[in-house]
Amino acid sequence: MARIRNGRSEPSRLAVGGLTLLGVILLWYVATSITQTIPPVYFPTPAEVLQALRQISLQGYADGRLQQHFFHSCWLVLMGFMVAVGIGVPLGMLMGWSRRAEAFVNPTFLLLRPIPPLAWIPLAIVWLGLGDAAKVLVIWFAAFVPAVINSYAGVRSIEPYLIEAARSLGVRGAMLVREVLFPGALPLIFTGLRLSLQACWTTLVAGELIGAIVGLGHVLYQAGLDLFPAMIVVGMIGVAIGGGLMTAALGWLETRAMPWHRR
């Protein structure tokens, strides 16, 4: 399956991306402020969003300043992500490796998997109260599934002869996992990690519905209650930046972990 190499270099892609963003902002400005094709009640103007941004950075909104909200959300996402990955990747790998484990765990997994993370909110409140633990639980559910599925697929994708070869050389147990299974499954594991991370961010908003005091999700919720669209946009931008930064970090981790792998 040949693929024509994209001749463009990295910096120029970034430039085009930046230009696009500028173009969209320009279009937004024209549509709302100048021509009023989008009435201000339906969507805020860029000026209003800037004003909201200033408000939340300087005076604070929803019981906190932008930095507090941003970092608390990043913290929650990281927690949920680590727990999900910490449990999901080993479990997925185990299920991929051992048909027995797969048959045993599958029923539970299949039963719980289709339930949306948001639907766990009522139970999360009852079981864990209104603290960060409940939020992490909701986020965890979202991130857990992609981690398991992709780790499973990762182990399954390893060529059997590699494992046989390693075995015949006397490699067993923990070493087998460390030297053969893990590296072999890594590409798909990372795909799973990306999906998990994205799920964490999108579920964060839902998680912070559970009695949050600070957080971007809390900002979004409060802005929704106040019917303050400009602040909602600020919250969305915050989430997009948080998610983007973490994904970039993950990408960096990926290139370090798999220097042999070309994307």
Partner: peptide, 19 residues
């Protein structure tokens, strides 16, 4: 389009509810 897309991907559907 991709940069826009990448930005919006992280915004939870539920955040669009007020809109």
């Amino acid at each position: 389009v991709s940069p826009l897309f990448d930005a919006l991907r992280f915004v939870a559907p539920i955040a669009w509810v007020p809109f």
